[in-house]
């Protein structure tokens, strides 16, 4: 019991990183219908951008902004230059998955060619410990939780209370109907890539701020829990991804405390399987059902 409470607290940090990455991933699929398996590698690329920025002596917080901006711009360009032509040529869901895997390999090997097969750390001040309710966190971990909460709040406000958010939800729900209602779906899709890419870049930088050393495969290794979060929440459902991140983040830390660190991933995925057995379309399933039909 004395390790259970801290484990839940520590799970919040993992959940924060997963939430930012998971919401971006699921939003991307929800609006664009492309399951972008290069997402983890774009996270890594954003981390390398942050690395270059901090190596130039600039603050890690500005590097965070630079990484997020890179993620947004790169994702829009990637979609415009590569994914959209494939979609226009009639490539379906499975074919697009193969295309995104190809992009993943290209980005990963490109990063290795540029930076080498080595490990890198962001140039940032050593964080100080902070004691809260019997648990110890660091300033960086608190910042990560704060960034995730702020990002989730902004996504919520955008989706619920802005025209763009409503247009995104309409496009995600039924693109043809949205187009017929006068929504410029191409522009909406561009903005969805920008927003989800920004979250992807942000997630890449906060991930490497937390793990402290990274290489060209760090983001792709993190992709599996990100996909799990998206699937658990109901693919295409940002709020589901937030909930999924909390469940997987806390469950994996509790498993490490109560059972064994070896079972961190196993327990999280057992929960995923159990939930999917009960609710095959995920916890929040509205769009997931539609996407399945479309696929």
């Amino acid at each position: 019991m004395n390790t259970l409470l801290p484990a839940i607290g520590f799970g919040l940090v993992t959940a924060s990183i997963l939430a930012v990455a998971g919401v971006g991933f699921t939003l991307q699929f929800g609006v664009t219908n492309i399951l972008n398996l290069a997402y983890g590698d774009i996270m890594t690329a954003a981390a390398f951008v942050a690395y270059l920025v901090t190596s130039a002596g600039v603050s890690v917080w500005l590097a965070l902004v630079a990484g997020a901006a890179f993620g947004g711009v790169f994702s829009v360009v990637l979609n415009r230059a590569l994914y959209t032509p494939f979609v226009r040529h009639g490539t379906r869901l499975f074919g697009m998955i193969i295309v995104t895997i190809s992009v993943s390999l290209i980005v990963q090997n490109g990063l290795q060619a540029i930076f080498g097969a080595s490990f890198f750390s962001l140039n940032m001040p050593r964080p100080a410990p902070i004691h809260v309710a019997g648990m110890v966190f660091t300033t960086v971990q608190f910042a990560i939780i704060g960034i995730a909460v702020a990002a989730m709040l902004l996504v919520h406000l955008l989706l619920r209370y802005t025209k763009l958010g409503k247009a995104m939800r309409a496009t995600a729900s039924d693109p043809e109907l949205a187009r017929n209602c006068g929504i410029a779906t191409d522009r909406v899709i561009d903005l969805a890539w920008a927003l989800s890419g920004t979250l992807c870049g942000l997630a890449g930088v906060i991930l490497v701020m937390n793990v402290t050393a990274f290489t060209d495969t760090t983001g792709s290794q993190f992709l599996i829990p990100v996909v799990a979060v998206a699937v658990l929440g109901g693919i295409g459902q940002p709020y589901g991804a937030m909930l999924g991140a909390l469940i997987i983040g806390i469950a994996s830390e509790v498993a490490a405390a109560v059972i064994s660190p070896d079972y961190k991933n196993v327990v999280a995925f057992v929960i995923l399987v159990i939930v999917l057995l009960a609710r095959p379309q995920g916890i929040l399933s509205e769009i997931a059902t539609r996407k399945e039909v479309a696929a």
């Binding site: 993992t14 937390n210 830390e253 405390a257």
Partner: peptide, 14 residues
């Protein structure tokens, strides 16, 4: 045994 490549090992440390 440690699961490799995790984003955090705080629980294990405690």
């Amino acid at each position: 045994p440690f699961a490799l490549g995790q984003s955090s090992y705080r629980t294990e440390i405690e």
